[in-house]
Amino acid sequence: MSAVKPRLTTSAMIASIAAEGQKTQAAPFGHALSALAETRPDIVGMTADLGKYTDLHIFARAHPDRFYQMGMAEQLLFGAAAGMAREGFTPFATTYAVFAARRAYDFICLGISEEKLNVKVVCALPGLTTGYGPSHQATEDIAIFRGMPGIVVVDPCDALDISQAVPAIAAHDGPVYMRLLRGNVPLVLDEYDYRFELGKAALLRDGPDALIIASGLMTMRALETAEALRKDRIDVAVMHVPTIKPLDEAAINAAAARTGRPVIVAENHSRIGGLGEAVAGSLLRAGLAPRFRQIALPDAFLDAGALPTLHDRYGISTEAMVQTIRGWL
């Protein structure tokens, strides 16, 4: 009798991306926003029937009179957020990344961005963080929002990053799109000498053999990959780029200018229009042409299934990354 491998099932949308036994923090966005609101009476929270799934329910509980449930109506959500901002408030408006990027694009673009309004668009399920299939997988959200003039695009890595990004994006006067990890969010960056600074990239570790440039949860994967490769005496650098627009081209170009070190961009996004192509553009404009590789999702509608299966299948799990990079070096 052979051992039967347990079959993984499509995880619920509220499933955490944390690995078993990993250090996590619960609902860092909700707690950070609630705390910030104590000193910022202008902050209001708005959602389109996804308060619970964007951790905004924590804020709603703490500040019920400042919470606006707009119902399942994303175009209304962002229109009304624009109106709130016009009256001097700072709305944090939450939904899933697919609905903000695809359904409400025009309302965020013309209603908010064109008028430089102070709305923070905070969206769960960025890239491939749900097994529900293409209806919920925002694999092209960064491409979409990078194309929108005037909006800042933030892709935090972990609970610490999110907690620090919330006051930073609130302090920025203008529209922001932030990708959100919700639920039990891994805590990784506390072990590095790191602070979130809007618009700044951070070199988390250095190494001569390759430079991995990453954002969002892929920074966590890159750090794990770096540890794994160290056992093979491969020493890679990891640069975290939590702000994708505006891009910290100076820091990226300086790190990539070190000769002989290939540049690998790792992103939880389609290979089209995300961090990879943003970095490539920056390097080429600066006259830099290192060996360049992308670890990214394919230009395709992705499968439904369990997240660990899908991350392996599309090459963004740590194990898959280690394999791929070994093959390149």
Partner: peptide, 25 residues
């Protein structure tokens, strides 16, 4: 001119947000 109109269908949603904001104030 209070808003940039012209992407038709946006005004009423913005008006809802302003109405809510005015009530808050």
């Amino acid at each position: 001119m209070e808003i940039s109109g012209g992407s038709l269908g946006q005004g009423l949603g913005i008006a809802v947000g302003m109405g809510l904001g005015l009530k808050r104030k």
